[in-house]
Simulated assay, not measured.
Amino acid sequence: MSDSFAAAWATWDTARGEGQCPVRPGRVTGDERPARCLAGHDLALAGCSLGYNHTYRTSTVSCRVCQDLRHPRATWALIDPAAESQVMAGADVDGLALVVTPPPRPGVAGTIELRTSAESRGRVELLLCGPCRRAVAVALDVRPEHRRTGVGTVLVEAARARGAGCRWTTVPRGADAVARAFWCRAPLLGPDRPQPCSHMLTAGWSHPDMAEAGWVL
């Protein structure tokens, strides 16, 4: 694809709104597809169609009832949160991808970002210890212009996939109204009392809530 053609294609995609399409964790493989749309309609009754988002380079699902109602979120893109679908930092990013930056040393935090080649839309920061099977979600941050589009939900599921089999805890989710609204509808990773393992403590990670809970550091 020539540079001029690629630029024209990207402009056309943006004009159609593909670059602002909502996202959700998932994938389309055979019969594996969402049961309900973003408005809550049963897709077996509403009917749906599958497509492709050329900006994100991923499959889309459209609810036919929402399309008839001209709902702005009738179509959404599926981002596979599986660990094997995540790419390592430094790799070429094609479309919208989950990019992993491993911790610089054992026991400290790494990150997963949902990003394009040009921007990060949000990131989750997490501590993982394979030997102890412990995982701590340290922070979840979504850029303001991409909030309420599903970015946070995708990042939570990506973290869960990377820490599969671990016992999860999180730092307190805070009193901010936007954060509270998100966690009231998103699947929780674990209790909001961080419980790091000895390797994380030895590496120097701490949080004020651990002192309140009686941790001796």
Rank of each mutant, 00 (worst) to 15 (best):
D80F: 06
V108T: 04
A181D: 11
W76C: 06
R123S: 13
A109H: 08
A135E: 13
E145F: 06
R105F: 15
N53Y: 10
T153W: 12
D209A: 14
P131I: 06
V100N: 05
A6H: 10
P72N: 04
S59M: 11
W205D: 04
R64E: 09
N53R: 15
L189E: 03
A8M: 15
D3F: 14
D68I: 04
T169R: 15
R24F: 03
G204T: 07
V171Y: 14
A83I: 04
L69K: 08
H71W: 13
Y56A: 02
G95E: 08
C37H: 07
R70N: 15
V61K: 03
H207Q: 02
Q86V: 00
L38R: 10
S117E: 13
V171W: 15
G190Q: 08
A46K: 05
E18A: 10
A10M: 13
E125P: 00
E212K: 14
P131W: 12
H71P: 06
R27A: 06
G165F: 03
R33T: 04
E119P: 05
V108P: 04
Q86A: 07
V154K: 00
A10C: 13
E119C: 11
Y52G: 00
T14C: 12
R134P: 06
V138C: 09
L217A: 13
L43Y: 05
L201N: 06
W76D: 03
D92L: 03
P196Q: 10
P187G: 11
Q86S: 01
G214L: 03
E157Y: 08
H41D: 04
G122W: 09
D141V: 07
R36I: 01
D141Y: 10
C37I: 02
P72D: 12
R64V: 01
R105K: 08
P194Y: 08
L217N: 14
F5R: 15
R24N: 00
M88V: 11
R180G: 11
P72C: 07
H207S: 00
P144R: 15
P72L: 04
A137F: 06
G107D: 00
G204C: 07
P106S: 06
Y56T: 02
P102A: 02
A7E: 13
A97V: 15
A89F: 07
W9H: 13
T116M: 01
A175D: 14
S206T: 08
A181N: 14
S198F: 12
A181F: 08
P187Q: 11
A89M: 09
A7H: 09
M210C: 07
M200Q: 12
M88P: 02
C129R: 03
A6T: 06
S2M: 09
R123G: 10
G95Y: 01
R160Y: 06
R162M: 04
R167Y: 08
E145T: 14
A186F: 01
M200F: 03
S117Q: 11
C197Q: 00
L140Q: 02
G163W: 03
